[in-house]
Design a protein around this nucleic acid. Structure first.
Length: 203
DNA sequence: GGTAAGATCAGC
DNA sequence: CTGATCTTACCT
């Protein structure tokens, strides 16, 4: 069972997901940018930036479940973002999928995203990635390693990774849990949250 | 029952 | 830099 390879800490799981292949509704894509998130204050990976930090709620329960499942949430009322749950069952942790390269089904993705979108930006950014692959809130909680799932994951040879601060979060932004494959234009540009304290401030 | 903030994106 | 847009979580 490949999901066992994700029963590790968020940074290790993030490394294993870089270069993995997502297969979803007529599209195949290689993950090239990810971001790790931890859990509750007294757990192994306390993370004030994580949805799971304040304990399980109806929204985030799947983050507390077994690894290898999909955790989706709605962002700013309009976008869907997708995470792969990692860490052992019962411990909250997940890896946000931030960008991918479309390998198969490019015309379909172009149709979903609009003709004006440059090829390189089709799945750049977590909201765009879900839009490109057709991932919705209906997919929350599905098993990514079940062959009958509409969204599936194949762990590949990990890519070389570069690490940096996380995007969009106002807490613990400097924790270097964002990983990307260097030199790939599909990787999103780094933008610090306007709400985050100055770089280097206490975590 | 009310409300503020948010793991975003596109367009000035 | 700003507006769009709405769910969740936390407060009274």
């Amino acid at each position: 069972m490949s999901a066992a390879r994700l029963a590790v800490d968020p940074l290790a799981a993030a490394q294993r997901l870089l270069g993995a292949t997502l297969i979803c509704r007529g599209v195949e894509a290689t993950i090239v940018e990810v971001e790790g998130y931890g859990g509750v204050p007294n757990g192994p990976w306390p993370d004030p930036a994580a949805h799971s930090y304040r304990g399980p709620t109806p929204r985030n329960t799947v983050m507390f479940g077994p690894p290898g499942h999909l955790y989706t949430y709605r962002s700013y009322g309009m976008h869907v973002c997708a995470n792969v749950v990692c860490g052992p069952d019962g411990t909250a942790a997940a890896v946000l999928l931030r960008a991918a390269v479309i390998d198969e089904g490019k015309p379909l993705v172009q149709a979903r995203r609009g003709d004006a979108v440059p090829e390189v930006a089709l799945a750049r950014g977590p909201g765009n990635l879900c839009s490109a692959l057709g991932i919705t809130m209906e997919d929350n909680g599905i098993d990514l390693f079940d062959p009958s799932s509409p969204v599936r994951l194949q762990l590949g040879g990990p890519l070389p990774a570069q690490a940096g601060p996380r995007v969009g979060v106002s807490q613990a932004a400097d924790r270097p849990w964002r990983l990307w494959a260097p030199g790939i234009p599909e990787v999103s540009a780094y933008r610090r949250s306007p709400r985050a304290p100055a770089p280097g401030a206490s975590d």
